[in-house]
Amino acid sequence: KRYRAVYDYSAADEDEVSFQDGDTIVNVQQIDDGWMYGTVERTGDTGMLPANYVEAI
């Protein structure tokens, strides 16, 4: 699945990823209600991200 960031996010922990509004997130997997795991296409960084900061595309 592919998602697009709708807000900027700065990683708060080493297992999270930072991204900017408009970034595409690929290979996304749902972890639980609030978190997903995926790769930021622009940077190649992979990690956890907050589900409410992205939307499906």
Rank of each mutant, 00 (worst) to 15 (best):
Arg4Val: 12
Asp33Cys: 12
Pro50Ile: 05
Val17Thr: 04
Ala51Asn: 06
Ile25Ala: 00
Arg4Gln: 10
Ala51Val: 10
Val26Cys: 09
Arg4His: 08
Glu14Tyr: 10
Tyr37Trp: 13
Val26Phe: 10
Tyr53Asp: 01
Pro50Leu: 06
Ala56Ile: 14
Asn27Ala: 10
Pro50Thr: 02
Asp33Leu: 10
Asp32Gly: 11
Gly38Thr: 00
Val54Ser: 01
Ala56Val: 13
Ala12Ser: 11
Asp33Val: 11
Val26Glu: 05
Tyr7Glu: 10
Tyr7Thr: 12
Ala56Glu: 15
Thr39Glu: 07
Arg4Gly: 05
Asp21Thr: 15
Arg42Trp: 04
Ile25Tyr: 00
Tyr9Pro: 01
Gln29Ala: 09
Ser10Gly: 07
Ser18Ile: 01
Val28Trp: 05
Asp13Trp: 11
Pro50Lys: 08
Asp21Lys: 15
Ile25Phe: 11
Gly47Leu: 02
Arg4Ala: 07
Glu41Phe: 07
Ala56Phe: 13
Ile31His: 07
Gly44His: 05
Tyr37Ala: 04
Glu16Lys: 10
Gly38Pro: 01
Ile25Val: 07
Gly47Trp: 02
Asp21Ile: 15
Ile57Leu: 10
Glu41Gln: 10
Asp8Thr: 12
Gln20Asn: 11
Thr43Tyr: 03
Pro50Gln: 06
Ala51Arg: 10
Met48Phe: 14
Ile31Asp: 04
Thr43Leu: 01
Val54Ile: 11
Gln20Lys: 14
Asp23Ile: 02
Arg2Asn: 09
Val54Thr: 04
Gln20Val: 14
Lys1Thr: 14
Gly38His: 00
Val6Leu: 15
Tyr7Asn: 13
Arg4Asp: 05
Val40Ser: 01
Lys1Cys: 14
Asp23Phe: 02
Pro50Arg: 11
Glu14Phe: 11
Asp23Ala: 02
Tyr37Arg: 11
Tyr9Lys: 03
Tyr9Gln: 02
Val28Ala: 10
Met36Cys: 08
Ala56Trp: 10
Asp8Leu: 06
Thr46Glu: 08
Tyr9Trp: 06
Asn52Asp: 11
Arg42Cys: 04
Ala12Val: 11
Thr24Arg: 07
Ala5His: 02
Asp15Asn: 15
Gly22Lys: 05
Phe19Ser: 01
Asp15His: 14
Gln29Asp: 08
Asp45Gly: 07
Lys1Leu: 13
Tyr7Gln: 15
Val6Gly: 05
Val17Glu: 00
Asn52Gln: 13
Met36Pro: 00
Ala11Val: 03
Val54Asn: 01
Tyr9Phe: 06
Tyr3Phe: 10
Thr24Ile: 15
Ile25Pro: 00
Tyr53Ile: 06
Glu14Leu: 11
Val26Lys: 08
Val40Tyr: 00
Glu41Arg: 05
Glu16Asp: 05
Asp13Leu: 09
Ile31Ser: 06
Arg42His: 06
Glu14Gln: 11
Ala51Gly: 08
Trp35Ile: 06
Gln29Ser: 13
Asp15Gly: 14
Gln30Pro: 10
Asp23Arg: 02
Gln20Leu: 14
Asn52Lys: 13
Arg42Val: 04
Gln29Tyr: 14
Tyr9Glu: 00
Tyr7Ile: 10
Val54Gly: 02
Asp15Ile: 10
Asp45Gln: 14
Glu14Lys: 12
Gly44Val: 02
Asp33Met: 09
Asp15Tyr: 15
Glu55Asp: 07
Asp45Ala: 13
Asn27Ser: 09
Gly38Phe: 04
Gly44Lys: 06
Thr39Val: 06
Lys1Ser: 11
Ala11Leu: 02
Tyr3Gln: 02
Thr39Asn: 02
Val17Gln: 00
Thr24Asn: 08
Gly47Arg: 00
Gln29Gly: 07
Val17Trp: 00
Thr39Gly: 02
Phe19Ile: 05
Ile25Gln: 00
Asn52Gly: 12
Glu41Met: 09
Phe19Glu: 01
Asn27Leu: 12
Phe19Trp: 01
Asp45Arg: 12
Tyr3Arg: 03
Val26Pro: 00
Ser10Asp: 13
Gly47Glu: 01
Thr46Trp: 07
Asp33Gly: 11
Tyr3Ser: 00
Tyr9Asn: 02
Asp32Asn: 15
Asn52Glu: 11
Tyr3Gly: 00
Leu49Gln: 01
Leu49Ser: 00
Ala51Tyr: 08
Gly22Pro: 02
Lys1Arg: 11
Gln30Ile: 15
Val54Trp: 02
Asp32Tyr: 12
Ala5Ile: 02
Ile57Trp: 09
Ala5Phe: 03
Glu14Asn: 11
Ser10Pro: 06
Asp15Trp: 14
Leu49Met: 09
Leu49Glu: 01
Gln29His: 14
Trp35Cys: 05
Ala12His: 12
Gln20Pro: 00
Met36His: 05
Gly44Gln: 07
Arg2Ala: 12
Asn52Ile: 12
Met48Ser: 06
Thr24Ala: 09
Glu14Ala: 13
Glu14Val: 13
Glu41Gly: 04
Pro50Trp: 07
Tyr53Arg: 10
Ser10Ile: 14
Tyr37Pro: 01
Ser10Asn: 13
Tyr7Asp: 08
Ser18Phe: 04
Asp45Met: 13
Tyr3Glu: 02
Asn52Phe: 11
Asp15Val: 09
Met48Trp: 15
Gly38Ser: 00
Ala5Lys: 03
Val28Phe: 04
Gly44Met: 06
Ile57Thr: 08
Gly22Asp: 04
Tyr7Leu: 13
Pro50Tyr: 06
Gln20Asp: 07
Gly47Asp: 00
Ser18Ala: 05
Val26Ala: 07
Asn27Met: 12
Pro50Ser: 05
Pro50Met: 08
Val40Pro: 01
Lys1Met: 12
Val54Ala: 05
Pro50Val: 04
Val40Trp: 02
Gly22Ile: 02
Glu41Ile: 08
Ala12Glu: 11
Val54Phe: 07
Ala56Ser: 10
Met36Asp: 01
Gln29Glu: 11
Thr39Lys: 07
Ser10Lys: 14
Asn27Asp: 11
Gly34Val: 14
Asn27Val: 14
Gly22Glu: 03
Ile31Cys: 13
Arg4Phe: 08
Phe19Thr: 02
Val54Arg: 01
Tyr7His: 14
Leu49Asn: 00
Asp45Ile: 11
Thr46Ser: 12
Met36Ser: 04
Gly34Thr: 14
Asn52Ser: 13
Val26Asp: 05
Val54His: 02
Met48Glu: 04
Met36Leu: 14
Lys1Glu: 12
Phe19Lys: 00
Gly47Ala: 01
Gly38Cys: 03
Glu41Pro: 02
Asp13Tyr: 12
Tyr37His: 10
Ala51Trp: 06
Val6Cys: 13
Lys1Asn: 12
Thr46Arg: 12
Val17Met: 03
Asp13His: 15
Val40Thr: 00
Gly38Leu: 03
Gly34Ala: 14
Met36Gln: 04
Asp15Leu: 13
Asp8Ser: 14
Val17Ile: 10
Asp45Asn: 09
Val6His: 07
Asp13Ser: 15
Gln20Glu: 09
Gly47Met: 02
Ala11Ser: 07
Arg42Gln: 05
Ala56Met: 13
Glu14Trp: 10
Ser18Leu: 01
Glu16Thr: 07
Ser10Leu: 13
Thr46Phe: 07
Gly38Asn: 01
Glu14Arg: 10
Glu16Ser: 07
Glu41Tyr: 07
Thr24Phe: 14
Thr43Lys: 01
Ile57Cys: 09
Ile25Trp: 00
Glu55Ile: 15
Glu41Lys: 06
Gly47Tyr: 01
Ala56Tyr: 12
Glu55Phe: 09
Ile31Gln: 07
Met36Tyr: 13
Glu55Ala: 10
Arg4Trp: 08
Asp45Tyr: 08
Glu16Gln: 14
Ala11Met: 04
Ala51Ile: 11
Tyr3Pro: 03
Glu55Asn: 07
Glu16His: 12
Thr43Arg: 00
Met48Thr: 07
Asp45Lys: 13
Thr46Lys: 09
Val26Arg: 08
Asp13Gly: 15
Tyr7Val: 10
Asp45Pro: 03
Met36Asn: 04
Gly38Arg: 00
Ser10Cys: 13
Ala56Pro: 14
Lys1Ile: 14
Lys1His: 11
Ala12Ile: 12
Val6Asp: 04
Asp8Tyr: 07
Ala12Leu: 13
Val17Asn: 00
Glu41Asp: 06
Asp33Glu: 13
Tyr7Ser: 14
Gly22Tyr: 04
Gly44Pro: 00
Asp33Phe: 09
Phe19Cys: 03
Ala51Gln: 07
Thr43Asn: 05
Glu14Ser: 12
Ala11Tyr: 03
Asp33Ile: 10
Asp21Tyr: 15
Ala51Met: 09
Gln30Arg: 13
Arg2Pro: 08
Ser10Val: 14
